[in-house]
Design a protein around this nucleic acid. Structure first.
Length: 467
RNA sequence: GUGGCUAUGGUAUAAUGGUUAUUACAUCGGUUUGUGGUACCGAUAAUUCGGGUUCAAUUCCCGAUAGCCACCCCA
């Protein structure tokens, strides 16, 4: 008796010492120590943290599934490209090229840049990788980071992720409608209400004629205009129709509309696209002022907007259009094409907001069981069993670093698992394991060799009756 | 790129020109080491950075940085 007590005391003292050491180690983990340099992410760059992962994963899956169904093949192009590629495609005078590109010299002295968008890269690949020899059209999709040195705001980052779809080698209103359908369905699958803003900007010649007409009209109204608009007349006449100043609204309403300046064939092409959208039941708003900021667009242009979004989500979630001249512009044969890209960061923000407001939830990873272990020998055996159950399709949560059963069951409870496995010294010796029903608390002892079958029998998802 | 607003633990917040900076959640530990949900106790953790005013600044001023808002533009 006496001896035993002594031993207990001794081990307690030992335990204390060990505990304090462990505590010291614990104190050093994580956190930020004072007077040490730390690094923040660069301006406009952000980390996507584990708690956001469920949104990103959901979006990727929705896009990939849609791409497969619509027969778009995945393409991945480099993040770095020659800057002239974008100057040529997006256009010299555009904001994206003029002030937002990350351009620098590489070690060879070449002017390269981080891609501000991917359409140019995809078209480059189409031209240089001989994709024009494939059955036409070539339908491609991508997902990846883009870079624009813009002033950051919510949903506007310097590195952001886009998913995009490009359909190269076909001039058919059905292709345009198809892209809009993919964009619309992307949000539909995520339960997010959006609407499509759409317009046609015709051919460059038609657009030029219209621009002149618009300028003629605005010149006569110059005295009514705001300062911005007077600048726009010089710089970017098509943007005149975007003005939000009250004093310009009247002038805007009376202004000529581009649709009236399109040729018959351009007009009927656009009408056909709209007919398809009607047939598909996709809500759209005709927006004569929609012109888009990249030079390569022709004919159909569209943008996707959240419905009733507040704040950051108010800006476009995505957009696209036809770019019939781009392939030729980038050195290929004259080839019609159309494409569309969606902003994932913005969509995630919208999804979070909308889901919170409407009490929708993204499904989290659910575990089937929690595996609790007790004692040294059980820990080793538990690892072995976990290893054996890998590939069983049973999702098992566990924490091998906690020694108290209480804590482990606490975790099990938080994870809302229906069952827990408990393995202690006794079970190790007997070759058994306890299966605990977390709701009723009823426990069952089974042979370790029969864990998998016993669990599958209990878990609903392995229920064969539905098959 | 232009203009504006803001900056307190991981998150959300309170307060103040002057002792030890409030609270909640989260995290970690515990309430005798083999049984969870509740409860209780405890621990860790913050005034963005740099200047100035002042006896004294987290608080007032200036600057930097970052975030946000509007414009621009776009995803």
């Amino acid at each position: 008796m006496k001896n035993k007590n002594k031993n207990v005391k001794k081990t307690n003292v030992k335990k204390q010492a060990v505990k304090e050491k462990v505590k010291k180690i614990d104190e050093n983990k994580g956190g930020v120590e004072k007077n040490k340099k730390t690094w923040a992410a660069l301006r406009g760059m952000h980390d996507i943290l584990p708690k956001e992962e469920k949104y990103w994963k959901t979006m990727y899956n929705v896009a990939a599934k849609s791409a497969e169904y619509m027969q778009f093949s995945r393409i991945e192009t480099p993040i770095l490209e020659e800057s002239s590629l974008f100057i040529r495609s997006i256009g010299k005078g555009t904001d994206v090229v003029e002030k937002e590109m990350y351009v620098f010299e590489d070690a060879d002295g070449g002017k390269i840049c981080l891609r501000p968008e991917a359409t140019a890269s995809v078209v480059r690949a189409y031209v240089t990788d001989g994709l024009w020899n494939n059955p036409q059209p070539v339908k491609l999709w991508y997902w990846g980071p883009m870079f624009r040195h813009d002033r950051p705001q919510a949903g506007r980052y310097r590195q952001f992720t886009q998913v995009g779809f490009e359909n190269i080698g076909i001039l058919d209103p059905a292709a345009d409608a198809e892209l809009i359908m993919i964009a619309y369905n992307f949000y539909k699958d995520l339960n997010l209400p959006v609407e499509i803003h759409i317009n046609s900007i015709g051919t460059p010649e038609e657009r030029e004629r219209y621009k002149n007409e618009l300028l003629n009209y605005y010149r006569t109204k110059k005295s009514y205009l705001c300062e911005e608009c007077r600048k726009r007349m010089q710089k970017n006449p098509l943007r005149l129709l975007d003005c939000k100043e009250e004093q310009c609204q009247g002038v805007k309403e009376e202004a000529p509309q581009i649709i009236d300046w399109l040729s018959e064939s351009s007009k009927s092409y656009f009408m056909k696209v709209l007919e398809y959208l009607d047939e598909l039941g996709i809500p759209y708003v005709l927006r004569p002022s929609l012109v888009r900021g990249l030079d390569y667009y022709t004919h159909t242009v569209f943008e996707v907007y959240p419905i009733s979004g507040e704040g950051a989500a108010q800006s476009a979630l995505g957009g696209g259009g036809r770019y019939d001249l781009l392939v030729e512009e980038l050195g290929g044969k004259a080839t019609p094409a159309a494409g569309m890209a969606l902003g994932i960061d913005r969509s995630v923000i919208y999804m979070k907001e909308y889901y919170q407001q409407n009490q929708l939830r993204v499904e989290k990873e659910n575990y089937d069981i929690f595996f609790a272990q007790l004692g040294d020998r059980a820990k080793g055996r538990a690892m072995k069993i976990l290893d054996e159950l890998r590939g069983s399709d049973i999702k098992i949560a566990f924490n091998l670093y906690k020694n108290s059963l209480k804590t482990q069951l606490d975790i099990a409870n938080e994870l809302k698992v229906p069952y827990a496995l408990i393995l202690g010294q006794k079970e190790v010796q007997e070759g058994t394991i306890i299966i605990r029903d977390m709701e009723s608390g009823i426990q069952e002892i089974v042979d370790q060799k029969k864990i998998e079958t016993a669990l599958k029998k209990k878990l609903k998802k392995f229920d064969d009756t539905n098959k």
